[in-house]
Design a protein around this nucleic acid. Structure first.
Length: 646
RNA sequence: GCCUCGGUAGCUCAGCCGGUCAGAGCGAGUGACUUGUAAUCACUAGGUCGCGUGUUCGAAUCACGCCCGGGGCUCCA
């Protein structure tokens, strides 16, 4: 559930538009006319009271705006007026019309607003446009006769739906957010709490970048993020224009890496004692509990209408696991009780301009673990364990403490009672940490941390996170039976040990891009490399031995049997970041040994070559991949049989 | 959602003050070469110039709308 785990760097909640405020619409049909003429014939029962001289009218060379005010407009008529008047003015200017006819036209909508709202909006539009144009308004709620002559040029007929973005609907939670006051400090391993402005960042440049990103929102980017080029060039992941933006396609190699990371995080969660579950990806907007929850903090959702239900796609696994938790019978003996799901996918309809490669998506894969704890003491203890586990998970994935910055955020009250604990967290990482404190609790949690990766373009994004949630047990009516037989509310931890899997891939690629820029040789950890060993037979007569070695190694080994020169094959292997490249020619045939190029020891232009036996190479691979999940080669073993995906 | 830049062959891109402007390199296919650590040579095929509408005698080129991507703003449980 937790956005930070996956997608954002900031802990503040998105202003939650309530689901009922979700869409605000006004339907417009704009006709550029030679003339428009109407006459009100007789009133309907909702008719607006108007003087006789307003019951008919005619405009020459006018833009005629047929308007249906919709039910949803009732939430914010002013915003609708502002938006719609701008739209009408834009078109009128474009077609060089000096006159505008506002014509209420109910048939454009199937969900009309109340007549009061409609009249209010119509009058609002009239007032808003009056300054710039000659405006006439046909009365609302009358049966009217009209004549219209459409000019018939390309822009003469346009229809518009005015949509007011969710963010403009001010909900209770948004109002609360604007009152949030954050205090920013740096906490050092020695336990000193220093205001950020007084902290000497010498030697902690990445932390400084992160802090600036967080507080000052410093951004300066003028190029495509390196990982976007890499994800395509390495044939891992790509954009999918046939879908919605931010929904990506994964090629076999990308799918392999993602699957390995998913399985690895699941394994590690299992080590912590988590039970894997699976929950639906869509939920009923009208479900009473979810409705309250959505009111509290929706990201922007994807909505789906199905038969009689109005559904939304989940943005985390919280829904499913909390609903499950609500129905479970849990004894205190079961606590701490941990459940995890790798959400494939979590959906958030992030704004178009925010989407970038693997960093920020609309559909992403998030390990989402929830832990029920008896009380705050137990929750804090569990928090410490999951903090340590997150460090270890990232380390195995290829990111160590130098690669990310730690943020710890809490309420003032929490800190007063747990100061030593917070300091111990900082001591664990042995480097200064960004601290954000709130005077009051505006969010559902009292304590959280995130690990924030700072990329090649100095952008920060959150990976691992854990939060202590003191609110949702109540909201979902989750309880456990204590030793005395009484039902009690647990404290709930939200944890994503790695953050979103896509984002982890992004971080790995960005890290390697930074290494490459610094003159080092980039590569993925051996356990994640789609091909672990490539064998290059020098001539056709060496192929049999190549396949024999491939089989004996029993890892992800492929054979470059293409009709290319050895030089070409070596170069291609380098471009694919192959950890081990074995060339087999007459010499190897004779000696039985292997000539292996070891990427991890190579420098640019200086491949590190070593002679070793098949067994030695196999042992080496076993050591480097011990304890990690394994999957078979994701592509045909013979390079000659492989398609190109990009 | 707004602003801005871009979309030309599978990929990277040139052409773009309207008129042999439909091109290059890589990739792909075919043939030759049987190859020892960052690109072997030759030939061939491939494109509604993102989509639509308009302006014009004539549009890849100009205008408008839309779609997709990059960046910025906003936003970022």
């Amino acid at each position: 559930m937790n956005e930070d785990a996956t997608q954002s760097s900031k802990p503040l909640p998105t202003p939650p538009p309530s689901p009922t405020h979700r869409v605000v619409l006004l339907q417009l049909l704009l006709i550029h006319s030679d003339y428009i003429e109407f006459e009100a014939k007789r009133p309907t029962k909702v008719a607006e009271d108007v003087p006789d001289d307003a019951k008919s009218g005619r405009l020459e060379e006018a833009l005629c705006a047929f308007i249906a005010v919709e039910k949803y407009d009732e939430d914010d008529p002013q915003a609708v007026v502002a938006q719609a008047s701008k739209e009408i003015a834009d078109v009128a200017t474009q077609v060089k019309a000096e006159r505008v006819m506002l014509y209420p036209y109910a048939h454009l909508s199937s969900a009309l607003s109340s007549p009061d709202t409609a009249v209010k909006v119509m009058k609002g539009l009239e007032a808003a446009l009056a300054g710039e144009f000659q405006v006439m308004r046909a009365p609302f709620g009358w049966y009217k006769a009209f004549q219209l002559s459409c000019k018939g040029h390309p822009l003469s007929e346009l229809s518009r739906s005015i949509r007011i973005g969710e963010g403009e609907v001010v909900s209770e939670a948004l109002k609360a957010e604007s009152k949030v006051v954050s205090h920013w400090k740096i906490l050092t391993p020695e336990g000193k709490m220093v205001p950020v402005e007084d902290f000497d960042f010498t030697g902690h440049e990445k932390l400084q970048k992160f802090v600036r990103y967080e507080i000052e929102k410093a951004r300066a980017v003028d190029r495509i993020p390196p990982h976007v080029e890499l994800m395509r060039r390495l044939e891992l992941v790509d954009y999918e224009p046939g879908s919605d933006p931010g929904n990506l396609r994964f090629y076999p190699k990308g799918r392999l890496i993602k699957a390995l990371l998913e399985n690895y995080v699941l394994d590690r969660a299992g080590d912590l004692g988590a039970m894997e579950v699976e929950t639906p990806i869509m939920y009923d907007m009208e479900h009473p509990t979810l409705k309250k929850y959505l009111d509290r903090f929706p990201a922007r959702q994807y909505a789906i209408d199905a038969e009689k239900k109005h559904l939304f796609l989940r943005f985390a696994a919280c829904f499913g696991q909390f609903l499950m938790g609500h129905d479970m019978t849990v004894s205190y003996k079961s606590l701490p009780l941990r459940m995890i799901e790798i959400t494939r996918y979590s959906f958030r309809r992030e704004q178009r301009g925010e989407l970038v490669g693997l960093r920020r998506l609309r559909a992403f894969t998030m390990p989402d673990m929830h832990t029920l704890c008896t009380d705050m003491k137990s929750a804090v203890e569990e928090f410490g364990k999951q903090y340590a586990a997150s460090i270890s998970v990232l380390d195995d994935a290829g990111l160590d403490l130098k690669d990310y910055e730690v943020a710890i955020r809490f309420t003032r009250d929490f800190y007063q009672e747990n100061e030593d604990f917070v300091k111990s967290l900082v001591n664990t990482v042995k480097k200064p940490v960004l601290i954000e404190t709130w005077d009051d609790r505006f969010f559902y949690f009292v304590l959280k941390f995130e690990f924030n990766f700072v990329d090649a373009l100095d952008k920060a994004s959150a990976l691992s996170t854990v939060q202590i949630d003191v609110e949702n047990a109540d909201r979902y009516d989750i309880n456990y039976i204590d030793a005395d037989g009484a039902a009690r509310r647990p404290i709930i931890l939200h944890c994503s040990p790695s953050g979103a899997i896509e984002r982890l891939m992004y971080a790995l690629l960005e890290k390697e891009a930074m290494k490459a820029a610094a003159g080092e040789v980039p590569m993925l950890p051996v356990w994640l490399s789609p091909t672990q060993v490539r064998i290059i037979p020098v001539a056709e007569r060496h192929q049999a031995r190549a396949f024999q070695v491939a089989e004996a190694l029993n890892f992800r080994v492929d054979v470059d049997d293409r009709e290319e020169t050895v030089g070409k094959k070596i170069r291609d292997a380098g471009r694919e970041w192959l950890p081990y490249v074995v060339v087999i020619g007459d010499d190897e045939l004779a000696s039985g040994e292997l000539t292996v190029t070891i990427r991890a020891k190579s420098q640019p232009k200086e491949p590190a070559k070593a002679g070793m036996t098949v067994d030695e190479l196999r042992l080496r691979l076993q050591e480097e991949t011990a304890g990690k999940p394994w999957r078979r080669l994701p592509l045909p073993q013979k390079l000659s049989e492989r398609p190109k995906f990009v």
